[in-house]
Computed example of a mutant assay.
Amino acid sequence: MTATENPAFRPVGANPTLLFGMDSTERARRIAANAGFGDAGNGAVLLANMDFAWDPAWLKEIARRPGTVLVSGSQPVLAHVPEGTDPAPVEQAMLGSGGSLAALEAVDSETAEVNYHELRKRERPFVLPLGPDSADAVERAAYDASYKGVTDVLTLYLWRKPAFYMTRWAAQMGLAPNAVTGVGAALCALAFFYFWFGNYWLGMAAGFIFMVLDTVDGKLARCTGASSKWGNVFDHGIDLVHPPFWWWAWAHGLGAYGTPLEPVYATMLLAAIVVGYVAQRVIEGLFMARFGMHIHVWRRIDSQFRLITARRNPNMVILFFALLAGRPDVGLELLALWTIVSLIFHGVRLAQAEMQAWRGKTPVSWLT
């Protein structure tokens, strides 16, 4: 929905607590703007109690429920006041100066059913009191909320905590997400050139730092309300395009490293990797177009396989251990094999979903 279709967003009260180095009210306005809420709306108003912090998913959920108030315990957190209803009593209730919530239906943040499929996870969106003593907990909750529930094993487990501290530091320093993406892009290119000339360990170092920054920029954008269409294109465009170039550079660098492969064989391996990568992306797009959800969230096994499927991060793990054994050439062979296995898995899953749909049973995500 656009800002004019949504209710107008209005913070209630003031809170001096800083979140990610930002004034909490300004951060709330930015997050609301990124979610499609502006100062003007459709005649209704969405009131936000600044004594609380909340997952942006709650904004969309309460916006879908005119005449409701999200409560934490007995305290009002977010209220969707319909057009024609006086918001003053609700504002007063949020400020603790009397007022009334009688005109609204209460939605308990601990028990409400929430449509939370956007980030492909099952965790309930958070609502937390906001104050100096709870700022760290709120920042961690906001950071965790920005994570897709279905991603690769490195992003989800290995550098989740380090990336949090980097995200918080970048926010406190006032760094823009696109600046972080730009630094990452430079490291991505540097990794390509190191791989090309067989300097694999230096390439690994540049590549892994880039991979961490690739997590930080998106989290920084979501946690500070600084998301933009250009930033999304910039970030995801790099993610989509660069992996085949890395594998090409890796293959080229084998000669300089001292473990060359026969040229025709190396070309065959590289073709399997690149074609398999593109084909998997096509399958993902077809699945999304046909069933309105990511292929990785259809069944639990799909989410589990996403942890290790032949994407950049798991592929780098394969190459890392091959390099540790002094055999980057074997790493390329294993990468081609794993790409083919992953392609077969996703191809079979698409065929199974089509068969289920043909039988009249539309595939539904296990996260629903």
Rank of each mutant, 00 (worst) to 15 (best):
L343S: 03
Q352R: 12
A271H: 07
L343Q: 01
M316E: 07
Q352L: 15
F287C: 09
V297A: 02
E354F: 03
V330K: 01
L307V: 01
I340S: 01
P314H: 08
L307K: 09
F345Q: 12
L337A: 14
H294W: 00
E333A: 14
E333F: 10
Q356F: 06
I344F: 13
Y277F: 15
V274F: 04
R281D: 11
V282F: 10
H294G: 14
L307N: 00
I301R: 14
L319Q: 11
H346D: 08
I340F: 02
G276L: 05
A310K: 00
G326V: 05
Q280C: 15
W298S: 02
R299I: 10
M316H: 04
V341G: 06
I340L: 13
F305H: 13
H346W: 14
L337R: 00
P328D: 07
E284H: 08
I301G: 06
R312M: 11
S303L: 00
V348F: 06
F291K: 06
N315R: 09
T339E: 13
R349G: 00
T309P: 00
A353G: 14
I318A: 04
N315K: 02
F287P: 01
F321Q: 05
L332F: 08
V348S: 06
E354M: 14
F305P: 03
Q352F: 03
M316K: 01
L286G: 00
F320Q: 01
A271D: 08
D329A: 10
F305Y: 15
F345T: 10
A322N: 05
L319T: 07
V348L: 14
V274A: 13
Q356W: 03
V282R: 04
N313L: 01
I283R: 05
V317R: 00
A325G: 05
A279M: 10
A336K: 08
Y277T: 12
V274E: 04
V330C: 05
G347W: 08
V278T: 02
F291V: 08
L350K: 03
L343P: 01
